[in-house]
Computed example of a mutant assay.
Amino acid sequence: MASTKSLDGKVIVVTGAGRGIGRGIALLCAAEGAKVVVNDPGVGTDGSGGDGATPAEQVVEEITKAGGTAVANFESVAEAIPASKIIKQAMDTYGKIDGVVNNAGILRDAIFHKMSIDAFEMVIKVHLMGSFYTSHAAARYFREQNSGSFVHFTSTSGLIGNFGQANYAAAKLGIVGLSKSIALDMGRFGVNSNCVSPFAWSRMIGSIPTETEAEKARVERMQRMGPEKIAPLVAHLLSDDAKEISGQIFAARMNEIFLMGQSRPLRSIHRAEGWTPQSLAEHGMPALKSSFYKLDRSADIFSWDPV
């Protein structure tokens, strides 16, 4: 009888898998039959300190006790050589690699004019550069075997906007461009690449203030959105059932899954003799103004309670 497990026999790397969303993905991938490389250096939410090897080892122990197969990895995705060692461990341990989930991330929020250069660069390195490093290391194996799946994590902070997250938003929107480029470049080799924007309670949003009753109620609602609500979408995108899905952006929020829009022209203006700064001020911009986007934040667009 054929297996009903969607990832049976596949080898999947999940970065930042020691806690939260990454842990949920690793557990489900293993339950769906995958051999999982559980990567997590055990650092804090800002990329410093932390618990070292412990989180990744605990997830491996959970998977093993449940009858699954997994190995722990403690490398950082923020540098090219350590990141490549994550992929190498999959090859050395299991002899192949079928999927990469770029979930690792840190937060260093600050209003823009007060954001340090270090805070900007480190968030870019972990999220955007880290997604590139692991994907690039896996790409040649995917090319050789003519198959493979990438799932990258984006955010509505980049897709829509949020206060105090210029570093995070820039990284997360950059990941969208990275994913689409991988999808275009590697589709001929049977490789797909997609983005997921998660709504889930995790350490990375655990610092939200709870001083007012409204804030407390909001956090209580968010705490109901566990990482287990994100994992099924990710596992599906890694499976053979989703091999024709590529270059897309999805969002997962409680029991809702959204297909997100991508930038396309909205409307245009034309002037036979060309435009001047004056004619743009008088005619061009007023003609376009009704289609301008507001300075929305994520919460303005996703304004209803999850169910």
Rank of each mutant, 00 (worst) to 15 (best):
D98P: 03
T93H: 09
G99V: 05
S84C: 04
L107R: 14
A90C: 04
G99M: 04
E79G: 06
A66W: 09
V71D: 05
L107Q: 14
I87A: 11
I106H: 09
V77A: 05
S84H: 13
S84F: 05
I87W: 04
T93D: 05
V101G: 00
T93P: 01
A90W: 06
M91P: 02
N102G: 00
A72Q: 12
I106N: 02
G68A: 12
V100W: 06
F74Y: 15
L107D: 12
G99T: 07
K85G: 03
E79W: 05
I97Q: 08
N103S: 02
E75L: 08
D98W: 15
K96Y: 01
N73H: 03
G99A: 03
T69A: 13
A83L: 10
E79S: 14
G99E: 11
A72S: 12
N73D: 12
V71F: 07
A80H: 12
A104E: 00
K88H: 07
N102H: 01
D98A: 08
K85A: 09
M91F: 06
I87N: 04
G67F: 14
S76G: 10
N103V: 00
Y94C: 07
Q89K: 09
I81Q: 15
G67S: 11
E75V: 07
A83P: 04
A66K: 14
E75G: 02
V77S: 02
F74R: 09
G95L: 11
G105N: 03
Q89P: 02
V101D: 01
K88W: 05
K88A: 15
N73I: 01
I106V: 15
G105C: 04
M91H: 03
I86V: 14
N73E: 07
E79V: 07
V71R: 15
D98R: 08
K88I: 06
K88M: 06
I81S: 14
D92P: 06
G105E: 02
D92W: 11
Q89E: 14
A83C: 13
T69R: 12
N103F: 01
N103T: 00
Q89F: 03
I106E: 02
F74G: 06
V101K: 00
E75I: 08
D92E: 13
F74W: 14
E79M: 13
G68V: 02
A83Y: 07
P82R: 09
A90M: 03
E75Y: 14
T69H: 13
S84L: 12
I97W: 06
V100L: 09
K96D: 03
Q89G: 03
K85H: 12
V100G: 02
A104D: 00
Y94M: 08
A80C: 11
M91I: 15
Y94S: 01
E79L: 15
I86C: 07
F74N: 13
G95H: 10
